[in-house]
Nucleic acid binder design. Structure first.
Length: 288
DNA sequence: ACTCAGGTATTAC
DNA sequence: GTAATACCTGAG
C-alpha cells in the first residue's frame, strides 16, 4: 500500500459529476474541494479535475495507472460511441449532450451484484448508507488523509454473517437475499470467474438470474456496470420506462407499457450500444 | 398517517 | 407465460 499519483490530460468524455452521479455506483462521495473520493477494491482513490487535467491520487496496492485505466474504462473511445448514438435521433443527441462526461465504470463483479440487490425498491441515500455500514462492519479499514475508509467485504468476509445481522444493518427484506446469494457464490453454485470468461451474454444473464434477489433489472445492471461490461443490455427501471414512453411509445399510462415493447425499441434503435443509450437517457430524464 | 424509492419473489389465474 | 400483491425502512 502506497500513496501514488497519476494524471491524464485533454480527455473528453470525463466529467466527475456525470460519472459518479449517473447512477452506476454507490461508493463515491464529493469532497469540499469538488473532487470525489471512493473505494475501489483495496484502493482508496481521489479524483480531481483541474483545467484540462484529471488528477488521480490515493493509496493503492497495485500501480495506480493500471487501476485507473481499467476502472475508468480509459481505453474505450467514448467520442466515437457518442457520435454514433447521436446520429440515431434528436432525443439521443439531447441526452448525450447533457451527460457527455459519462463513462461506464468497470466495477468489481461481486460488489456490483450485492450493491444492486440492495438497490431493489430502495432509494439512493439509503442504498449508499447500507453499503457503507456493510463495509464498515465487515470490510478492511484503510486510512487516507486521516479519514477512515472501508473496503467492500469479500464473500469470505460475509461467510458467517447471519440474516439477523443483515437486518440490523437496515437491509430490510433484502437480508435473506444477501445471505442466500453470498452462500451460492461461496459454494460456487454460481462461479463468478467462469461468468467473466463466458462471451455469451444471454447465458451469463441466465446464471445471474439464479441468484436470490437478482431479477431482470438487477441482472442487466450487473451486466452493464460490472467488469462483465456488456453494452448490449438495457436495464429497465421506472425512469427508463418513463423516458422511453415519453420519447418513443407515448402511451397515456407509462405503467401499461410492456417490458417487451421497450426492449424491442431499444434493440432496434440502439443495438449493441443499448446499455450506453440507456445510461444517457436515464441520467438526462432523471436530472435534467 | 401515508406515500414513495434503481424490483423481486410468491401466488393466483 | 402474464397480472396482482406483499415487502423493510426512513425521509418528506
Amino acid at each position: 500500500m502506497q500513496k501514488q499519483k497519476y494524471k491524464i490530460e485533454n480527455i473528453d468524455s470525463f466529467d466527475l459529476k456525470d460519472i459518479f452521479e449517473c447512477g452506476q455506483c454507490f461508493r463515491w462521495n464529493k469532497q469540499e474541494d469538488g473532487s470525489y473520493t471512493g473505494v475501489v477494491k483495496n484502493n482508496i482513490l481521489n479524483v480531481k479535475k483541474q483545467d484540462n487535467q484529471i488528477i488521480f491520487q490515493g493509496i493503492c496496492e497495485d500501480n495506480i495507472q493500471k487501476i485507473v485505466e481499467n476502472y475508468f474504462d480509459l481505453n474505450r473511445d467514448y467520442e466515437k460511441i457518442k457520435k454514433d448514438l447521436s446520429k440515431i435521433d434528436d432525443n439521443m443527441k439531447t441526452s448525450i449532450e447533457y451527460g457527455k462526461g459519462i463513462r461506464i465504470l468497470n466495477q468489481d463483479l461481486w460488489e456490483t451484484i450485492i450493491s444492486f440487490i440492495i438497490s431493489a425498491n430502495n432509494n439512493i441515500p439509503r442504498i449508499k448508507g447500507i453499503i457503507e455500514r456493510l463495509s464498515q462492519k465487515y470490510g478492511k479499514e484503510i486510512i487516507y488523509k486521516g479519514e477512515k475508509y472501508y473496503t467492500f467485504p469479500t464473500p469470505e468476509e460475509l461467510k458467517n454473517v447471519t440474516v439477523e445481522e443483515y437486518r440490523k444493518l437496515g437491509l430490510g427484506f433484502r437480508d435473506i437475499r444477501l445471505y442466500e446469494t453470498t452462500k451460492m457464490i461461496l459454494e460456487k453454485e454460481i462461479d463468478l470467474e467462469k461468468l467473466k470468461e463466458n462471451p455469451n451474454t444471454k447465458e451469463v444473464r441466465e446464471e445471474l438470474l439464479k441468484l436470490s434477489g437478482v431479477g431482470p433489472k438487477v441482472a442487466d445492471c450487473i451486466l452493464l456496470f460490472s467488469d462483465l461490461k456488456r453494452f448490449e443490455v438495457f436495464p429497465i427501471d421506472v425512469w427508463v420506462r418513463r423516458v422511453m414512453n415519453d420519447l418513443y411509445i407515448k402511451n397515456e399510462d407509462e405503467n401499461k407499457v410492456s417490458k417487451k415493447q421497450i426492449e424491442k425499441i431499444a434493440e432496434e434503435k440502439f443495438g449493441n450500444l443499448a446499455g450506453l443509450a440507456q445510461q444517457y437517457l436515464f441520467y438526462w430524464r432523471r436530472e435534467a
